[in-house]
């Protein structure tokens, strides 16, 4: 098992190297002056010259790359001009907000999509099956920022059920003591039900927006793989042996059908992390997505670069986790190792 994990870790290394090279290229091979980019729009020529020196831009590209990697290994992503802090600190304080939202969105989406996809496959041709197909096509067509705005209009403006879409907590509640950075968990740990309720109310709409967005691929995949498994020999044998339909579906088919679904999670995460940026903008969510947008508009490049790199590294690690999860679910993968 340990060797297996080591092998998986090794497969992630080329991706990480690729990611670092691309982010380096994105900053250094610009059709313009990177020093001027980093200095911001209002910098004087001397300031730009200073930044050029401090960034080592007067050296050759390979030398710059070595320096870049050294900086990264020390966690030095540069400094944000808009917040005046180092990018790594900004990202650290904002990351939990994004992570809480994305993970909750994925969990809600899985809780709906997986049973739905299974039902659609078991009752093929029924109303549920048709609804499933409509959702799968309509879901991928929805611009996530548009869904979010519609939800805000209906649930905030018309019905008044949800609080104003302005961040993680309304103005009257105070943030729970920092433990994990996830407000839901922190407030429960602190035993503060009031702030748990408040942060859940704020989370509800952005979470639903993300869940609707990722519903389509998961439903589609669950249905397809469940259909494939249900028509396989071992399910037929199980049925022929007189097992109840429930046992056949839950014990025999479900576990096998989950394998391709877990694999698609990687792709779902790619979309989800991108959609997260848009959702954060719609709900003024103080995560790393809105941080990057603010920096982009101010032409403050260091945070954008830090953001792209953080997202990419997280995504590589997520894929690694999914790979390992696959090994846990499917014993055959373990044996092959």
């Amino acid at each position: 098992m340990l060797r297996q994990i080591g092998k998986r870790l090794a497969t992630a290394i080329p991706s990480l190297i690729g990611v670092i090279i691309v982010t380096f290229l994105l900053t250094r091979v610009l059709p313009g002056d990177p020093a001027a980019y980093f200095a911001g729009p209002a910098a004087s020529p001397q300031a730009i010259e200073e930044i050029r020196k401090s960034l080592g831009l007067d050296k050759s590209l390979p030398e710059q790359f070595v320096r870049y990697v050294q900086d990264l290994s020390r966690g030095d992503f540069g400094k944000s001009l808009t917040t005046g802090q180092t990018v790594i600190i900004d990202i650290k304080t904002r990351l939990p907000a994004s992570a809480e939202l994305t993970l909750l969105g994925l969990i809600v989406s899985m809780l709906i999509a997986v049973p739905f996809g299974i039902l659609a496959a078991v009752k093929q041709g029924s109303i549920i099956d048709h609804a499933c197909r409509v959702i799968a096509t309509a879901g991928v067509s929805l611009p996530v920022f548009f869904t979010g705005l519609l939800l805000v209009y209906v649930f905030y403006f018309i019905l008044g059920w949800s609080p104003a879409p302005l961040g993680r907590l309304d103005a009257f509640a105070s943030a729970p003591k920092h433990v994990t950075g996830f407000y839901l968990i922190d407030s429960l740990l602190a035993g503060n039900l009031e702030s748990f309720r408040a942060s859940l109310a704020q989370l509800a709409l952005p979470t639903i927006t993300l869940a609707i967005f990722s519903l389509a691929p998961i439903t589609r995949m669950t249905r397809a793989s469940m259909l494939a498994v249900l028509s396989s020999d071992f399910v037929r044998t199980a049925r022929a042996s007189g097992l109840s339909p429930r046992t056949v579906i839950v014990t025999y088919a479900f576990r096998n059908a989950m394998l391709p679904v877990v694999t698609t999670l990687g792709m779902v995460f790619s979309f989800l992390l991108g959609a997260n940026v848009l959702v954060e903008k719609v709900f003024a969510w103080p995560g790393i997505g809105s941080y990057a947008i603010e920096a982009l508009i101010a032409s403050d490049f260091a945070p954008v670069q830090g953001f792209v790199l953080t997202m990419a590294i997280m995504y590589v690690l997520l894929n690694l986790t999914i790979d390992m999860l696959y090994g846990v679910i499917d014993p055959r993968v373990r044996l092959e190792g």
């Binding site: 991706s15 995460f269 790619s270 979309f271 989800l272 959609a275 940026v277 954008v304 997202m311």
Partner: peptide, 10 residues
Amino acid sequence: AFPLFVLAMG
């Protein structure tokens, strides 16, 4: 290896 929309932003 990148989340695609994030790469497009970059």
